[in-house]
Design a binder for these strands. Structure first.
Length: 275
DNA sequence: GAGCCTCGAGATCT
DNA sequence: CTCGAGGCTC
């Protein structure tokens, strides 16, 4: 039985097992609003002051029809928003301006490419450092990258094959939005070429802090133990990854041995140094 | 041994 | 979602 999108009336398909339906109309106002809210959100382009209420008005007044239009808004446009005087309008204007210099990884995330979230966006940005390069990648080369499989590769390729998306990217560039990533800053290469796996809870670091430390020292974090794993860092209550490490003879590090190597003993994760 | 399948673990996801 | 392990066939 066909259903219709409540916002635009287009016929939608409800996939088996999926909670929500998907409207395929690229011009559906509900979709445009969602993409803008996500684009401006804290985890994406982080445009302070631009939430659902502001987006709603911008779209309804036809001031904005896609993410690139945000950068064409004038102070006068913003002054037309409800309960918005000089102060609020200026703040919003400056927040939009400031978002132009976000790193490429944030922009990639913000574009809303299916299956490309913060982590995958960071991987792509660090590896290629230029959106124009990423736009020309083939599915075959994308799949070579660890953590990227066929689903993500297909999604990325099809996103950059869409003329409408390429046009939006050109408009963003023309508006002065940053589309490149700086060279990665590796402080020293103590873990260069090494693959590490984390298991169990660490006492002085969160998982992402530990990953960040490893990457900063040139190492790679993997999610499962194999013969290619160099070290397993075992915290409290480790999972099956520790058993596998023992079985494969992979070197196991305690938390303090790990901190010794990265030379950050007591300098990270002070938040939860003691429980 | 290569190729293909299913499965579980762990991380990620507009 | 991705990946590796284990099981199976040829």
């Amino acid at each position: 039985m066909p259903e219709n999108c409540p916002a635009c009336g287009a016929t939608v398909i409800r996939f088996e097992g999926e909670v929500a339906y998907r409207c395929d109309n690229i011009n559906c106002p509900a979709r445009i609003k969602e993409s803008l809210i996500f684009f401006a959100s804290r985890e994406a382009m982080d445009i302070e002051g631009m939430g659902p209420a502001v987006v709603e008005q911008l779209v309804d007044r036809n001031l904005v029809n896609n993410v690139a239009d945000l950068y064409r808004l004038s102070l006068e446009d913003l002054l037309t928003l409800d309960k918005t005087g000089q102060k609020k309008a200026t703040n919003l204007f400056e927040a939009i301006e400031a978002s132009k210099s976000r790193p490429l990884s944030r922009l990639l995330h913000a574009l809303g490419i299916r299956f490309v979230g913060g982590k995958t966006a960071r991987i792509l940005a660090e590896q290629y450092r230029d959106i124009d390069v990423i736009a020309t990648l083939s599915e075959e080369s994308l799949v070579q990258i660890p953590e990227i499989g066929v689903k993500i590769a297909t999604s990325v390729v099809s996103f950059f094959n869409e003329p409408e998306n390429l046009e939006t990217i050109e408009k963003l560039k023309a508006a002065g939005v940053n589309t490149r990533e700086a060279e990665p800053t590796v402080v020293d290469g103590k873990l260069t070429g090494k693959t590490l796996v984390l298991t169990g809870a660490l006492e002085s670091l969160t998982r992402s802090e530990a990953s960040e430390l490893i990457e900063k020292h040139g190492g790679k974090v993997s999610s499962s133990v194999s013969r290619k794993t160099d070290y397993v860092v075992a915290g409290a209550d480790p999972g099956s990854k520790l058993d596998k490490a023992i079985k494969l003879g992979v070197t196991i590090l305690t938390e303090s041995e790990f901190l010794e190597i990265v030379g950050n003993k007591g300098q990270v994760g002070t938040m939860s140094a003691r429980q």
